[in-house]
Design a protein around this nucleic acid. Structure first.
Lengths: 131, 131
DNA sequence: ACGTTACATGACGTTAACGTCAACTTCACT
DNA sequence: AGTGAAGTTGACGTTAACGTCATGTAACGT
């Protein structure tokens, strides 16, 4: 019989490349809420999904507080209309920001590429002169 | 006769929505190096260009130290070959990172859009039921 | 000459996101 | 029963990126 797959804190660390301190810290910030076996934490599949979202959010430069709100939006779907409308707005704004960021990033990438082509040319010139 | 356009620290603040403290702080971090009129700072066109790059870098989530290196790459083109090659590599890496970030961002945007469509549908349902 | 701005420097405070250390429990074995 | 590994809860330390005084000076209008 396959037990419900839960991971210890150490296994979580190894799997997601985070420290135990980080996981406990996220818990105090109410980003995670693993179940307990006595005093020990056990992370369910749900916890792991949340952690992945957290880590991705971080790569986008979102603050943990931002991420907490986003997670709430993803998870809390049995809410009332006002609640839903509010989280919907929050999501819309976030979406706008992300799109703007992506566009700006595209421009910056293009610029950097041009710049690097110039550098590459300079390097070639150096090498040619050294022959 | 048009004097060489330089801005005072206050004018810089108003123009770019940063505090004087921030500008002085950037100076201690060698991100900016305005000229002096006595003890007072005067920001040239070059300084303004650098500040814009700094602010854009920040919007992408780069650290000030990252930005400093990027700025060096943009500006120092009279360097030796080793120097140039090194900064070139640095730029390449950064470019990879930025592209990866952009791609990840695109995925997240798509997901969020789907999610929000669901929320929008739920809202409509609510409204329909309320008629 | 004098008061009011504008600016300067220096020192200390602040927040986010953990790191680090100490001092227990608690299993899992031997 | 003893020991070692893994886990727990505090408590304090750390870094980045500024904010917030306190204090001092310099130019400008009256």
């Amino acid at each position: 019989m396959t037990t419900v797959e839960t991971l210890t804190i150490r296994e979580m660390c190894d799997t997601y490349q985070v420290t135990a301190r980080t996981l406990r810290f996220y818990e105090t910030k109410e980003l995670l809420s693993p179940i307990r076996a006595g005093s020990r934490r056990l992370y369910t599949k749900q916890d792991r999904a949340r952690l992945q979202l957290i880590l991705r959010g971080k790569r986008f430069g979102f603050s943990l507080e931002d991420i907490r709100q986003l997670l709430d939006m993803y998870n809390r779907n049995g809410s009332n209309q006002a609640q839903l409308a509010r989280t919907f707005d929050l999501g819309q704004n976030r979406l706008e920001q992300m799109k703007a960021q992506r566009d700006e990033l595209s421009v910056a990438i293009a610029e950097l590429e041009t710049e690097l082509q110039g550098a590459a040319a300079a390097l070639s010139a150096f090498r040619d002169a050294a022959e």
